[in-house]
């Protein structure tokens, strides 16, 4: 179980401190799939880094199964937006990396890496280097690399944002399959509302500047889900409506509001990215 208690993170910008994420209370149950949606720059990555232990909260605590975290740990692994694979290692060596760091015997490294590469259907590419793979394949390797460490919690920071719609769809199915099989707890961050509703047990929206949790939506729909399922579309509309306000705020902060005055309210794409990026 992951518990965030009044978690706040401040960054200082030439002397002024601003809250990037503020007062976050969140509990994620064992084996739950939670999605966090919010406009760009609202602090989603920061929140992921906090839970990963890569950043320290300015206030509040983060507990994993009741124990406060003190830094990165093998129980929590991050899958990043862009491929954070190591270009000098083969696919196989990338997947073995975490096990190697943990001092696992070579035979175990090989075996586990092989197992998880099969799970993401990339066994054939075990000898390839990252630059030889497509964007979707890289992210599947990144998922295999994370799973190979057998973490309890998978933290996913817009892992499919850079992929085309078809590839993303396939990876959604693959991820749900993996989640069922491995029973991981997943926190998945995205700015894509449809993606969130297809994947999650619960979706939380975030406000921008400061980043706070705004509202939670439970989705009790059997998987696999279709993005265009009428039940989901209703939820998507509700979420988007809630996000309009936040996107408008970002647009204003970024000095794009003159566009809005000219053209009327910002059109929010169904992917929730809005006009501003």
């Amino acid at each position: 179980m992951v518990v965030l208690e009044r978690v706040t993170k401040q960054f200082s910008h030439n002397g002024n401190k601003t809250d990037v994420v503020s007062d976050i209370d969140l509990t994620i149950a064992e084996g739950e799939f939670v999605c966090l949606v919010g406009p760009s720059g609202c602090g989603k990555s920061t929140l992921i880094y906090l839970i990963a232990g890569l950043e320290k909260p300015s206030a509040g605590r983060i507990l994993i199964d009741g124990t406060p975290i003190t830094g990165p740990g093998r129980d929590r692994v991050v899958v990043f937006q862009e491929s954070a694979l190591f270009p000098w290692l083969t696919v196989q060596q990338n997947v073995e990396f975490g096990l190697k760091m943990a001092g696992a015997p070579k035979a175990e490294q090989t075996k586990k890496a092989g197992h998880y590469l099969r799970m993401v259907h990339l066994s054939r590419f075990s000898g390839a280097y990252p630059y030889q793979l497509s964007g979707g394949m890289k992210q599947r390797v990144a998922i295999a690399r994370a799973l190979a460490m057998d973490p309890k919690i998978l933290l996913m920071d817009e892992p499919f944002a850079a992929l085309d719609a078809q590839t993303r769809h396939l990876l959604h199915e693959e991820l749900i399959e993996i989640w069922r099989e491995t029973k991981k707890t997943i926190l998945f961050v995205t700015h894509n509302v449809r993606e969130a509703t297809v994947l999650a047990d619960r979706v939380f929206t975030m406000t921008a500047r400061p980043g706070r949790l705004k509202k939670g939506y439970a989705i009790h729909l059997q998987r696999p889900r279709r993005e265009s399922d009428p039940h989901l579309v209703v939820v998507q509309q509700r979420i988007l409506l809630g996000l309009q306000e936040e996107i408008a705020k970002v647009v204003k902060d970024e000095g794009l509001d003159y566009l809005v005055k000219k053209t009327g309210p910002v059109a929010v794409g169904a992917d929730g990215s809005g006009g501003a990026r």
Binding site: A52, L54, P72, R74, A84, F86, F97, M101, R145, M149
Partner: peptide, 20 residues
């Protein structure tokens, strides 16, 4: 990003330096 990925996989100190 490379450093963050390495750290979440348990690389630190001299190992982080030589392997990453």
């Amino acid at each position: 990003l490379v450093l963050r990925a390495a750290k979440t996989m348990g690389a630190r100190g001299a190992t982080l330096f030589w392997h990453v």
